[in-house]
Protein backbone atom coordinates (compact mmCIF):
# COMPACT_ATOMS: atom_id res chain seq x y z
CA UNK A 1 0.00 0.00 0.00
CA UNK A 2 1.15 3.44 -0.89
CA UNK A 3 1.78 6.17 1.59
CA UNK A 4 -1.18 8.49 1.66
CA UNK A 5 0.02 11.24 -0.55
CA UNK A 6 -3.01 11.32 -2.72
CA UNK A 7 -1.01 12.42 -5.72
CA UNK A 8 1.93 11.50 -7.78
CA UNK A 9 5.00 12.78 -5.99
CA UNK A 10 7.53 11.68 -8.53
CA UNK A 11 10.07 8.94 -8.41
CA UNK A 12 10.38 8.87 -4.63
CA UNK A 13 7.05 7.14 -4.14
CA UNK A 14 8.35 4.41 -6.32
CA UNK A 15 10.73 3.14 -3.62
CA UNK A 16 8.36 4.04 -0.88
CA UNK A 17 5.60 1.96 -2.36
CA UNK A 18 6.78 -1.31 -0.86
CA UNK A 19 6.55 0.14 2.61
CA UNK A 20 3.39 -0.44 4.49
CA UNK A 21 1.86 2.24 6.56
CA UNK A 22 2.43 1.37 10.14
CA UNK A 23 0.83 4.29 11.87
CA UNK A 24 -2.19 2.15 12.70
CA UNK A 25 -0.36 -0.23 14.98
CA UNK A 26 1.40 2.44 16.96
CA UNK A 27 -0.53 3.30 20.05
CA UNK A 28 -0.26 6.81 21.39
CA UNK A 29 1.05 5.95 24.83
CA UNK A 30 4.26 4.14 23.93
CA UNK A 31 6.85 6.83 23.73
CA UNK A 32 10.39 5.76 22.86
CA UNK A 33 12.05 9.15 22.85
CA UNK A 34 10.83 12.39 24.34
CA UNK A 35 12.72 15.64 24.52
CA UNK A 36 11.62 19.02 25.74
CA UNK A 37 13.28 22.35 25.03
CA UNK A 38 16.62 20.67 24.50
CA UNK A 39 19.49 23.01 23.87
CA UNK A 40 23.15 22.64 23.16
CA UNK A 41 25.63 25.43 22.77
CA UNK A 42 29.31 25.36 21.89
CA UNK A 43 30.65 28.61 23.22
CA UNK A 44 28.56 31.32 21.63
CA UNK A 45 27.29 29.02 18.90
CA UNK A 46 23.84 27.55 19.44
CA UNK A 47 23.91 24.17 17.72
CA UNK A 48 20.53 22.98 18.96
CA UNK A 49 18.01 25.59 19.97
CA UNK A 50 15.16 24.50 22.24
CA UNK A 51 13.86 21.54 20.33
CA UNK A 52 11.03 19.31 21.55
CA UNK A 53 10.12 15.96 20.06
CA UNK A 54 8.14 12.85 20.78
CA UNK A 55 8.89 9.63 18.99
CA UNK A 56 6.67 6.60 19.30
CA UNK A 57 7.84 3.06 19.67
CA UNK A 58 8.37 1.25 16.40
CA UNK A 59 8.40 4.43 14.39
CA UNK A 60 10.91 5.37 11.71
CA UNK A 61 11.54 8.97 12.61
CA UNK A 62 13.41 11.03 10.07
CA UNK A 63 15.45 14.02 11.10
CA UNK A 64 16.04 16.09 8.01
CA UNK A 65 18.13 19.12 7.47
CA UNK A 66 21.17 20.50 5.68
CA UNK A 67 24.68 19.89 6.96
CA UNK A 68 25.39 21.83 10.12
CA UNK A 69 21.72 22.19 11.05
CA UNK A 70 22.20 20.38 14.39
CA UNK A 71 21.26 16.82 13.45
CA UNK A 72 24.39 15.11 14.76
CA UNK A 73 24.43 17.21 17.90
CA UNK A 74 20.87 16.15 18.67
CA UNK A 75 21.54 12.48 18.01
CA UNK A 76 24.68 12.55 20.16
CA UNK A 77 22.75 14.04 23.05
CA UNK A 78 20.10 11.36 22.69
CA UNK A 79 22.78 8.62 22.80
CA UNK A 80 24.35 9.98 25.96
CA UNK A 81 27.50 11.13 24.18
CA UNK A 82 26.94 14.83 24.61
CA UNK A 83 25.48 16.62 27.60
CA UNK A 84 22.59 18.96 26.78
CA UNK A 85 23.14 22.57 27.82
CA UNK A 86 19.49 22.84 28.73
CA UNK A 87 16.14 21.13 28.59
CA UNK A 88 15.30 17.56 29.42
CA UNK A 89 14.59 14.29 27.74
CA UNK A 90 14.22 10.56 28.06
CA UNK A 91 15.22 7.70 25.83
CA UNK A 92 13.46 4.41 26.54
CA UNK A 93 12.22 6.01 29.75
CA UNK A 94 15.77 6.81 30.95
CA UNK A 95 16.81 10.37 31.67
CA UNK A 96 19.37 11.74 29.22
CA UNK A 97 21.18 13.90 31.75
CA UNK A 98 21.06 11.48 34.69
CA UNK A 99 21.49 8.07 33.12
CA UNK A 100 23.48 8.28 29.91
CA UNK A 101 25.19 4.95 30.61
CA UNK A 102 21.82 3.25 31.05
CA UNK A 103 20.78 4.61 27.68
CA UNK A 104 23.91 3.17 26.08
CA UNK A 105 22.72 -0.32 27.05
CA UNK A 106 19.39 -0.03 25.27
CA UNK A 107 20.28 1.88 22.13
CA UNK A 108 22.29 1.14 19.05
CA UNK A 109 24.21 4.05 17.56
CA UNK A 110 25.76 4.39 14.17
CA UNK A 111 27.86 7.53 13.88
CA UNK A 112 28.09 9.68 10.83
CA UNK A 113 31.72 8.88 10.18
CA UNK A 114 32.44 5.19 9.64
CA UNK A 115 33.82 4.18 12.97
CA UNK A 116 34.49 0.48 13.03
CA UNK A 117 38.10 -0.70 13.18
CA UNK A 118 39.36 -0.82 9.62
CA UNK A 119 42.44 -2.81 10.62
CA UNK A 120 40.23 -5.58 11.96
CA UNK A 121 38.47 -8.13 9.80
CA UNK A 122 34.70 -8.19 9.45
CA UNK A 123 34.45 -11.06 11.89
CA UNK A 124 36.87 -9.50 14.41
CA UNK A 125 34.82 -6.32 14.44
CA UNK A 126 31.66 -8.28 15.13
CA UNK A 127 33.37 -10.29 17.87
CA UNK A 128 34.68 -7.13 19.49
CA UNK A 129 31.36 -5.32 19.58
CA UNK A 130 29.54 -8.42 20.68
CA UNK A 131 32.02 -8.53 23.57
CA UNK A 132 31.63 -4.90 24.63
CA UNK A 133 27.85 -5.15 24.29
CA UNK A 134 28.04 -8.19 26.52
CA UNK A 135 26.08 -10.45 24.18
CA UNK A 136 25.54 -13.73 26.05
CA UNK A 137 27.88 -16.51 25.01
CA UNK A 138 25.15 -18.80 23.73
CA UNK A 139 23.78 -16.07 21.44
CA UNK A 140 27.08 -14.80 20.10
CA UNK A 141 27.40 -17.16 17.17
CA UNK A 142 23.81 -16.75 16.12
CA UNK A 143 24.04 -12.96 16.24
CA UNK A 144 27.28 -12.97 14.29
CA UNK A 145 25.79 -15.08 11.51
CA UNK A 146 22.73 -12.87 11.53
CA UNK A 147 24.81 -9.72 11.00
CA UNK A 148 26.95 -11.34 8.30
CA UNK A 149 23.81 -12.45 6.53
CA UNK A 150 22.00 -9.14 6.96
CA UNK A 151 24.96 -7.20 5.59
CA UNK A 152 25.47 -9.74 2.81
CA UNK A 153 29.14 -10.24 3.66
CA UNK A 154 29.17 -13.81 4.96
CA UNK A 155 31.72 -14.72 2.30
CA UNK A 156 33.98 -11.81 3.28
CA UNK A 157 34.12 -12.45 7.00
CA UNK A 158 37.91 -12.77 6.86
CA UNK A 159 38.49 -9.57 4.89
CA UNK A 160 39.91 -6.47 6.50
CA UNK A 161 37.14 -3.96 6.99
CA UNK A 162 39.09 -1.28 5.16
CA UNK A 163 38.86 -3.36 1.98
CA UNK A 164 35.06 -3.42 1.94
CA UNK A 165 33.02 -1.23 -0.41
CA UNK A 166 31.09 1.67 1.12
CA UNK A 167 27.70 -0.02 1.11
CA UNK A 168 28.99 -3.14 2.86
CA UNK A 169 30.82 -1.06 5.44
CA UNK A 170 27.64 0.81 6.17
CA UNK A 171 25.67 -2.39 6.68
CA UNK A 172 28.39 -3.92 8.81
CA UNK A 173 28.36 -0.79 10.96
CA UNK A 174 24.60 -1.10 11.34
CA UNK A 175 25.00 -4.78 12.21
CA UNK A 176 27.62 -4.06 14.87
CA UNK A 177 25.38 -1.39 16.39
CA UNK A 178 22.49 -3.82 16.82
CA UNK A 179 24.32 -6.95 17.97
CA UNK A 180 22.73 -6.56 21.39
CA UNK A 181 19.26 -6.19 19.83
CA UNK A 182 18.51 -2.71 21.16
CA UNK A 183 14.90 -1.52 21.07
CA UNK A 184 15.95 1.94 19.91
CA UNK A 185 18.32 2.75 17.05
CA UNK A 186 20.03 6.02 16.27
CA UNK A 187 21.48 6.29 12.79
CA UNK A 188 23.39 9.44 11.91
CA UNK A 189 23.45 9.95 8.15
CA UNK A 190 23.76 6.24 7.50
CA UNK A 191 23.46 6.64 3.75
CA UNK A 192 25.80 9.55 3.11
CA UNK A 193 28.49 8.77 0.60
CA UNK A 194 26.91 5.50 -0.49
CA UNK A 195 25.76 4.66 -4.01
CA UNK A 196 22.01 4.89 -4.80
CA UNK A 197 21.40 1.13 -4.95
CA UNK A 198 23.08 0.60 -1.58
CA UNK A 199 21.11 3.49 -0.19
CA UNK A 200 17.86 1.91 -1.21
CA UNK A 201 18.90 -1.47 0.20
CA UNK A 202 19.87 0.23 3.41
CA UNK A 203 16.44 1.76 3.78
CA UNK A 204 14.92 -1.66 3.32
CA UNK A 205 17.02 -2.85 6.24
CA UNK A 206 15.82 0.08 8.31
CA UNK A 207 12.27 -0.84 7.42
CA UNK A 208 12.90 -4.42 8.53
CA UNK A 209 14.17 -3.16 11.89
CA UNK A 210 11.05 -1.13 12.31
CA UNK A 211 8.86 -4.10 11.34
CA UNK A 212 10.57 -6.02 14.10
CA UNK A 213 9.29 -3.39 16.54
CA UNK A 214 12.41 -1.25 16.87
CA UNK A 215 12.27 2.49 16.98
CA UNK A 216 14.57 4.04 14.41
CA UNK A 217 15.72 7.62 14.64
CA UNK A 218 17.54 8.45 11.46
CA UNK A 219 19.09 11.65 10.16
CA UNK A 220 19.68 12.46 6.53
CA UNK A 221 20.26 15.40 4.30
CA UNK A 222 18.84 13.58 1.30
CA UNK A 223 15.32 14.95 0.96
CA UNK A 224 14.29 12.09 -1.31
CA UNK A 225 14.77 9.67 1.57
CA UNK A 226 12.11 11.37 3.64
CA UNK A 227 9.35 9.27 2.18
CA UNK A 228 10.80 6.17 3.82
CA UNK A 229 9.99 7.65 7.21
CA UNK A 230 6.78 7.42 9.21
CA UNK A 231 7.29 10.87 10.61
CA UNK A 232 9.69 13.67 10.00
CA UNK A 233 11.08 16.73 11.60
CA UNK A 234 12.83 19.38 9.55
CA UNK A 235 15.67 21.05 11.38
CA UNK A 236 17.30 24.24 10.25
CA UNK A 237 19.87 26.26 12.17
CA UNK A 238 19.20 24.33 15.35
CA UNK A 239 15.43 24.77 15.29
CA UNK A 240 12.69 22.42 14.22
CA UNK A 241 10.81 24.26 11.52
CA UNK A 242 8.27 21.58 10.64
CA UNK A 243 7.13 18.22 11.89
CA UNK A 244 4.67 15.57 10.74
CA UNK A 245 4.17 12.67 8.36
CA UNK A 246 5.54 13.22 4.86
CA UNK A 247 2.09 13.91 3.52
CA UNK A 248 1.19 16.29 6.34
CA UNK A 249 4.29 18.27 5.59
CA UNK A 250 3.41 18.50 1.92
CA UNK A 251 -0.13 19.63 2.49
CA UNK A 252 -0.19 21.54 5.73
CA UNK A 253 3.02 23.48 5.51
CA UNK A 254 2.66 24.21 1.84
CA UNK A 255 -0.14 26.78 1.67
CA UNK A 256 1.10 28.05 -1.64
CA UNK A 257 1.14 26.21 -4.95
CA UNK A 258 4.11 24.82 -6.79
CA UNK A 259 4.23 25.01 -10.55
CA UNK A 260 6.47 22.88 -12.67
CA UNK A 261 7.59 24.74 -15.73
CA UNK A 262 8.89 23.14 -18.88
CA UNK A 263 10.99 25.48 -21.02
CA UNK A 264 13.82 25.23 -23.56
CA UNK A 265 16.48 27.27 -21.87
CA UNK A 266 16.18 26.57 -18.18
CA UNK A 267 18.99 28.76 -16.86
CA UNK A 268 18.08 31.71 -19.01
CA UNK A 269 14.46 31.37 -17.98
CA UNK A 270 15.43 31.39 -14.33
CA UNK A 271 17.37 34.66 -14.86
CA UNK A 272 14.46 36.28 -16.60
CA UNK A 273 12.07 35.24 -13.85
CA UNK A 274 14.32 36.44 -11.05
CA UNK A 275 14.55 39.86 -12.78
CA UNK A 276 10.80 40.12 -12.61
CA UNK A 277 10.84 39.12 -8.95
CA UNK A 278 9.86 35.46 -9.24
CA UNK A 279 12.08 32.87 -7.51
CA UNK A 280 12.55 29.60 -9.33
CA UNK A 281 14.58 26.50 -8.54
CA UNK A 282 15.99 24.07 -11.07
CA UNK A 283 14.74 20.48 -10.82
CA UNK A 284 16.40 18.43 -13.53
CA UNK A 285 15.27 19.94 -16.82
CA UNK A 286 12.36 21.79 -15.28
CA UNK A 287 11.84 24.78 -13.01
CA UNK A 288 9.85 24.72 -9.78
CA UNK A 289 8.18 27.96 -8.86
CA UNK A 290 6.26 28.63 -5.69
CA UNK A 291 3.34 30.96 -6.23
CA UNK A 292 0.50 32.38 -4.15
CA UNK A 293 -2.15 30.90 -6.43
CA UNK A 294 -2.04 28.73 -9.47
CA UNK A 295 -3.92 30.91 -11.96
CA UNK A 296 -2.36 34.33 -11.31
CA UNK A 297 1.07 32.75 -11.01
CA UNK A 298 0.77 31.06 -14.35
CA UNK A 299 -0.21 34.33 -16.04
CA UNK A 300 2.70 36.23 -14.53
CA UNK A 301 5.23 33.61 -15.52
CA UNK A 302 4.04 33.17 -19.05
CA UNK A 303 3.95 36.91 -19.58
CA UNK A 304 7.46 37.44 -18.25
CA UNK A 305 8.99 34.63 -20.27
CA UNK A 306 7.24 35.36 -23.54
CA UNK A 307 8.32 38.99 -23.33
CA UNK A 308 11.91 37.68 -23.44
CA UNK A 309 11.15 35.26 -26.22
CA UNK A 310 11.29 32.06 -24.19
CA UNK A 311 8.63 29.57 -25.12
CA UNK A 312 6.72 27.88 -22.31
CA UNK A 313 6.15 24.25 -23.28
CA UNK A 314 4.21 23.27 -20.23
CA UNK A 315 3.19 24.60 -16.85
CA UNK A 316 1.62 22.16 -14.39
CA UNK A 317 0.57 22.45 -10.78
CA UNK A 318 2.34 19.64 -8.89
CA UNK A 319 2.31 18.18 -5.40
CA UNK A 320 5.31 19.82 -3.79
CA UNK A 321 8.29 17.61 -3.09
CA UNK A 322 9.73 17.81 0.42
CA UNK A 323 12.54 19.81 -1.01
CA UNK A 324 10.03 22.44 -2.17
CA UNK A 325 8.52 22.42 1.28
CA UNK A 326 11.89 22.78 2.88
CA UNK A 327 12.99 25.62 0.62
CA UNK A 328 9.73 27.47 1.28
CA UNK A 329 9.96 26.94 5.03
CA UNK A 330 13.51 28.23 5.12
CA UNK A 331 12.44 31.35 3.21
CA UNK A 332 9.67 31.92 5.72
CA UNK A 333 11.91 31.49 8.75
Amino acid sequence: MKKQDGNNVGSVTHHASRFTHRASRITGSDIAVKIENMRRTFGAFVAVDNISLEIKKGEIFGFLGPNGAGKSTTIRMLCGLLMPSGGSGTVGGLDIAKNPEGIKRIVGYMSQRFSLYDDLTVEENINFFSGVYNVPKEKKLERKEWVLDMAGIADRRGSLTRDLAGGFKQRLALGCAILHEPPILFLDEPTSGVDPVSRRNFWHLIDDMSQAGRTVFVTTHYMDEADYCDRLALIYRGRIIAEGTPSELRHEYMKRDVLELEVDRVVEAMDVLSKSGIDAAIFGSTLHITVESESTGRQQITAALEASGIKVKGCEKIVPSLEDVFVTLIEVS
Binding site: E101, K104, R105, F114, S115, L116, Y117, Y133, N134
Partner: peptide
Protein backbone atom coordinates in the same frame (compact mmCIF):
# COMPACT_ATOMS: atom_id res chain seq x y z
CA UNK B 1 40.53 7.49 13.70
CA UNK B 2 37.00 8.21 14.84
CA UNK B 3 36.52 4.77 16.39
CA UNK B 4 36.19 6.31 19.84
CA UNK B 5 32.75 7.68 19.08
CA UNK B 6 31.43 4.18 18.42
CA UNK B 7 33.28 2.74 21.39
CA UNK B 8 31.91 5.23 23.91
CA UNK B 9 28.38 4.69 22.62
CA UNK B 10 28.58 1.12 23.94
CA UNK B 11 28.05 0.14 27.58
Amino acid sequence: RGTMEQLISTP
